[in-house]
Amino acid sequence: MRLLLIHTAGGEGSVALGDTALAQAIVATEALPGRTSSERLVPAVRRLMEASGFRLSELAAVVVVYGPGSFTGVRVGVSAAKGLSEAGGVPLVAVSRLALLAAAVDGAGEAVHAVLDAGRGEFYYGEYVRQRCLREALMAREDVIAAAASGVVVVCEEKVAEALAELRPKVLEEPSAADALPLALERIVAGEFDDAMTLDANYLRRTDAEIFAKPALPRAAKPRVGGAADLAEVVALERRVVEAPHWAEAEYGAIVGGGAAGAVRRGLFVAETDEGLLGFAVGKVILSAADGVGELESVAVDAAGRRRGVGRSLCEAVIGWCREQGAVEMELEVRAGSSGAIALYEGLGFGVVGRRGGYYREPDEDAVLMQLKLAGIK
């Protein structure tokens, strides 16, 4: 299976030829330095194909990285790919630049958040789980911070890495056209091709109405104490959130049915809007003759609530409750790879105090132990 791959959406463009019949599937590549794609793309394609003995009509597909990125670069790449596809009568496969970046890391079942610079203080954002796209959007910095609170954050631009430093992103080289081969092969095997007549560039830009109106995203209501009436929604939400600890419904029932009394006290807090439950958190306090110790046992936020500060407000509710119950310090455990969650907890005042090897399962991962002193916190 022979393929032509084109990527002109980034800072530097590239072209590649692939042949899956060979042990080394990438046969040839050529970089298009700087922003020279409009002049060099077609000559580079012709040069590579002639040198490698490829014929347009023999290709299994033309593959193009169709954005988001440079408007000019994206347009040039998409236009050339569509023209070549139609001229050779071969299928067309369009691959997102965000998907390409996300595929460069192993999320081990966690969400992978790919982020690119969109200019004007905004970012192209994509969320993926096991290379399946959950969403792609244009976001402001604060929205990216909230959306990527858990999982792996990956970038390929130093400017973006600096802007999102609190998320501790993994910084990679910009993926090239050759890197699109595995994603393209999955699409081809599944028979999922794009229509050259209707394919448009993946700009991810907002409409004029969105740009000028800038409607405010509704925020979740202030967290409240959860009750028996919330249990069905709490359990349903928990099952949707991969990183949440999955407890039996009876466990939550015990919390709301008398968990706030005695030496060991537990509290359930929920955040909701008219749309329904957006998140919940569970706190625990163990009282002794000396001092009480609180624990943030669980925080789970639905995808619809991850751009609204829901996780932070739930954490703050649990911290306040633990203090009221007599705790003088708090503890929590978090997956070592959850850089966004760790950044959130550090922003709340928690500090890293240790590590527990192999604590988590599915996937196996260490736990980072964090602690917060409540004395003096208002």
Rank of each mutant, 00 (worst) to 15 (best):
A28G: 02
T29R: 12
T29E: 15
E30D: 12
E30R: 14
A31D: 13
L32S: 05
L32W: 06
R35D: 12
R35P: 02
T36R: 14
T36I: 06
T36P: 02
S37P: 07
S37W: 11
S37N: 15
S38M: 15
S38V: 14
R40Y: 05
R40V: 04
R40P: 00
R40I: 03
L41R: 15
P43H: 09
P43K: 09
P43M: 08
A44N: 01
V45Y: 06
V45M: 11
R46Q: 13
R47D: 00
R47E: 01
L48K: 01
E50C: 03
S52F: 06
G53A: 03
G53Y: 00
F54E: 01
F54A: 04
R55M: 05
L56G: 04
S57V: 05
S57L: 01
S57F: 03
E58I: 03
E58M: 05
E58P: 05
E58Y: 05
E58F: 05
E58D: 14
L59W: 08
L59E: 07
A61R: 12
A61V: 11
V62I: 12
V62C: 08
V63K: 13
V63G: 10
V64D: 02
V65Y: 02
V65P: 02
G67A: 11
G69F: 02
S70Q: 08
S70K: 06
T72I: 13
T72S: 15
T72R: 13
G73I: 08
V74T: 15
R75D: 01
R75W: 03
V76M: 13
G77H: 12
V78N: 07
V78S: 09
V78R: 10
S79L: 14
S79Y: 06
A80V: 14
A81H: 15
K82N: 09
K82D: 07
G83W: 06
G83Y: 04
S85C: 15
A87S: 15
A87N: 13
G88R: 04
G88D: 04
V90P: 04
P91E: 09
L92N: 05
V93H: 05
A94M: 09
A94R: 09
A94S: 13
V95C: 01
V95N: 00
S96Y: 03
S96A: 07
S96K: 06
S96F: 03
R97G: 05
R97P: 00
R97M: 00
L98D: 02
L98N: 00
A99D: 00
A99Y: 00
L100W: 03
L101K: 03
L101Q: 04
A102K: 00
A102R: 00
D106Q: 10
G107C: 13
A108V: 02
A108F: 08
G109N: 12
G109L: 13
E110I: 01
E110H: 15
A111D: 14
V112W: 07
H113P: 04
H113W: 09
H113V: 05
A114K: 00
A114V: 03
V115C: 08
V115R: 03
V115L: 08
D117P: 10
D117A: 15
R120D: 07
R120T: 04
G121V: 14
G121Y: 14
E122Q: 15
E122V: 02
F123S: 01
F123W: 05
F123G: 00
